[in-house]
């Protein structure tokens, strides 16, 4: 079983990203399950999407939710949310985290600051493999800040952490986005992959 946990702030598009990954697994004949935060938490709240897929067509996926310490990869759309969910990651798991911190109203109102850079350093210190990426800049280069989710999915595809090919994820993306946005999202996947290529 391979598991990816995607986390961020409501509105960042974690649901589409998790569906693309699951769709890619399904297209290759494997079992796939996802579990997503939908509803109240969408309004700028913390959101988490779980994706669990079989490694072979035969492998059964027990539950849609990833137990702590069982995620192969953690995609943090926002540093604080990545840190909040790091407990889900396997000891040798991969973190891909978007650099830009989103300061919630609670922090803006309070005296205590929220320092994204400190959080990123903590992630780097506590994850076996941590890629800090500037996903927003890549998304803007594609023409819309909204493709951040596909940029980060491209990064995940490049790591091979889910045992899915880049091409397989691309085909799943094409199935999942509106035809008018396919070209922009192809670019987003490619830019995302480039960000973690070593």
């Amino acid at each position: 079983m391979k598991s990816a946990l995607l986390c961020g702030v409501g509105g960042q598009g974690t649901v589409l990203a998790s569906r693309i990954i699951a769709q890619a697994a399904m297209n290759s004949g494997r079992q796939a399950r996802t579990a997503e935060t939908i509803g109240m938490a969408q309004r700028g709240g913390a959101v988490v999407s779980h994706v669990r897929i079989g490694e072979t067509p035969e492998e059964r996926v027990t539950s849609p939710l990833i137990p702590d310490g069982q995620a192969d990869v953690l995609i943090g759309f926002e540093p604080g949310e990545a840190a909040r969910n790091l407990k889900a990651l396997k000891p040798d798991g991969i973190v891909i985290v978007n650099r830009r911190a989103i300061v919630p109203v609670t922090a803006s109102l309070g005296k205590s600051g929220y320092d994204g850079e400190t959080v990123l350093k903590w992630l780097e210190a506590n994850a076996a493999h941590c890629f800090v990426v500037d996903g927003d800049r890549a998304a803007q280069a594609c023409g819309s800040e909204k493709v951040l989710n596909v940029v980060l999915t491209g990064a995940l595809a490049e790591t091979g952490a889910m045992g899915l090919s880049f091409e397989g994820i691309k085909q799943a993306m094409i199935r999942r986005v509106k035809p008018a946005f396919v070209e922009m999202n192809k670019k987003a996947l490619a830019l995302g992959a480039k960000m973690v290529r070593r």
């Binding site: 700028g44 709240g45 310490g69 604080g80 949310e81 840190a83 609670t106 922090a107 903590w122």
Partner: peptide, 21 residues
């Protein structure tokens, strides 16, 4: 085989409840 993960304490993370858009 499943156990809670032990991590060093993280830096202060903001609470992030849902808000009016």
């Amino acid at each position: 085989d499943l156990h809670p993960t032990n991590l060093p304490e993280s830096p202060a993370l903001p609470v992030r409840p849902p808000v009016l858009c």
